[in-house]
Design a protein around this nucleic acid. Structure first.
Length: 93
DNA sequence: GGGGGATATGGTC
DNA sequence: GACCATATCCCCC
C-alpha cells in the first residue's frame, strides 16, 4: 500500500500537515520550508496528487493573495473548510 | 494599492 | 515534452 511518494511530496505533506488549525500558509511558504524555494507550483502539484487529503490539510494552503486557489475537491469546498475552521476556532476560543 | 497580461520556475506524469 | 492548486515583473490608472 504505502504508495511510493517522491521525496518532494513527502516533505510537502509533512510541512502542510504541521500547519496549525485555523491558519493558512502560501505555496511559496511551503516550498521554502521544504527547501524548494521557487517550487511553489510544484507544491501545488504534489498536493493535487495528495493521497491522504485527510491527514494533509491541503485546504490550508493558499496563494500569496491570501485567497484560496484551487482544490482537488473543489475550490468551493476549500473556502467552506477555511470558513468552518475559522468559526470553530472562534467558538472554541 | 489594485487589475491585467506575460514570463519564469520546479516537479511529476 | 506537456501540464499545473503559483510567483513575480511590467504597465497603467
Amino acid at each position: 500500500m504505502a504508495k511510493e511518494l517522491t521525496h518532494f511530496e513527502k516533505k510537502v505533506y509533512t510541512v502542510v500537515k504541521n500547519i496549525p488549525f485555523g491558519k493558512t500558509r502560501t505555496y511559496k511558504w511551503v516550498a521554502e520550508k521544504i527547501g524548494a524555494k521557487g517550487a511553489s507550483r510544484a507544491v501545488g502539484n504534489a498536493l493535487n496528487k495528495n493521497p491522504f487529503p485527510i491527514i494533509v490539510p491541503c485546504h490550508r494552503v493558499v496563494n500569496t493573495s491570501g485567497y484560496p486557489g484551487k482544490y482537488a475537491f473543489g475550490a468551493d469546498l476549500k473556502k467552506k473548510l477555511l470558513t468552518l475552521e475559522k468559526i470553530t476556532k472562534c467558538c472554541l476560543k
